[in-house]
Amino acid sequence: MPITTNDGVSLHYETTGDGPTVVFVGDVGYGAWQWGWHHDAVAGPYEAVVWDLRGTGDSDAPAGPYDVATLAADLDAVLGDHGVRSAHLVGAGLGGMIALQYAHEYSRARTLTLYNTASSGDAVDAEALDALGLDRGPKQSLSGAFSPRFREDATDLVERITGWREAEDATGDAFAAQATAMTAFSAPPLYEVTQPAELYYGVDDPVVPSDAAESLAADLPRGTSEAVEGRHCSFVEHAQPVTDRLTAFLDQHTEDQH
């Protein structure tokens, strides 16, 4: 369903399931396909909210550059429109940065689950990030996202991912605007982000180095980190164990509320 932000940008989001709300916040360029595996694991006992960042999918693509503060305001507009009072946030890459900013600035964040995220854009390899863009070629741009073994062994799935990307991903100026938001990010004071937080990072991620992700977890008062085999989309490549951990984390912090 579409909403319009205060600056006139139309944002698209969809909801499935019934229960505590889990909101998925996407990475640079990638459409809603990136959350397909998580969505199936979560929707039902939880309400899953998936939205397209400005520049992606069915949302508007206003001229950039974008910044994380604006994207966090977009997230609040989505949650406000849907009447959500509190939500578990799950973000990847840029989406993790948006979740951090949102948790500091707004009152609805309940927990954070972050994939391949850093506290500063200075830690992001801008060239490796740019190489993930669909404009680099559907197959070539997957090399930084998935391990060689995955790309060789899961050829049918890789073909489906390529089709989903061609239908949903941000390209051109919209991709560049989102990438600028990621590389220009500087986290708010992390000691003030007190929500329970779990971070997962790809051990071979060319975009966000392992030490940057580990440092972020260490600086969050309630943060933990765990390595996952793979590259920038390690959370997709190893979706089953990652989503098992996610649902356990959500269950724990839902029970804590009772």
Rank of each mutant, 00 (worst) to 15 (best):
Q34D: 01
R151H: 05
D156W: 13
L89H: 13
P138E: 14
D135R: 12
V50P: 04
H82K: 14
D122T: 10
L100G: 03
E127S: 14
A61L: 06
Y46T: 10
Y46R: 15
A41P: 07
A61P: 03
D60M: 05
V68G: 01
R54I: 07
R108S: 08
A103W: 06
S143G: 11
T111H: 10
P45T: 10
Q101V: 00
S107Q: 14
D76W: 11
R136P: 09
V49T: 03
G95I: 04
A167T: 03
D125S: 08
W37E: 14
D76M: 11
G91S: 04
P65F: 09
A167H: 07
P65G: 12
A87E: 11
A63Q: 15
Y102T: 00
A72K: 09
L112N: 04
S120D: 09
G121K: 02
V90K: 12
G96V: 01
L142S: 04
L79H: 12
E159C: 06
W37V: 06
R136Q: 15
W37N: 11
G80N: 15
G133T: 09
A145M: 11
W33T: 00
G44K: 10
V78W: 13
R136K: 15
D81C: 14
A61E: 02
R108M: 06
V124H: 00
D125P: 02
H88G: 12
G55S: 02
A167Q: 13
G95T: 00
D81V: 07
G133W: 12
S86Y: 15
Q34A: 06
S86F: 15
F146R: 05
A92H: 10
A77C: 13
W164T: 02
G64Y: 07
Y46C: 13
R85F: 11
G80P: 09
W164A: 08
P45C: 12
W51Y: 15
H39A: 12
G31M: 00
E166L: 12
G57C: 05
D58V: 03
V124W: 03
G172Y: 02
D81M: 13
I98R: 01
L53S: 07
G121W: 01
A131H: 07
S147G: 07
S86K: 15
L100T: 08
T162V: 12
Y46L: 14
A128D: 05
E168K: 02
D74V: 05
I98L: 08
A131C: 09
D81S: 15
S120W: 08
H39C: 08
V78H: 10
R108C: 07
G121M: 00
H38N: 11
D156H: 15
A118E: 02
R108F: 01
R160D: 13
G36N: 15
A72P: 02
A99I: 01
T111Y: 10
W35H: 01
L114Y: 09
S107Y: 09
L53M: 10
D156F: 13
R136F: 13
Y102C: 03
L89N: 11
D130P: 06
E168H: 04
W51M: 05
P138V: 09
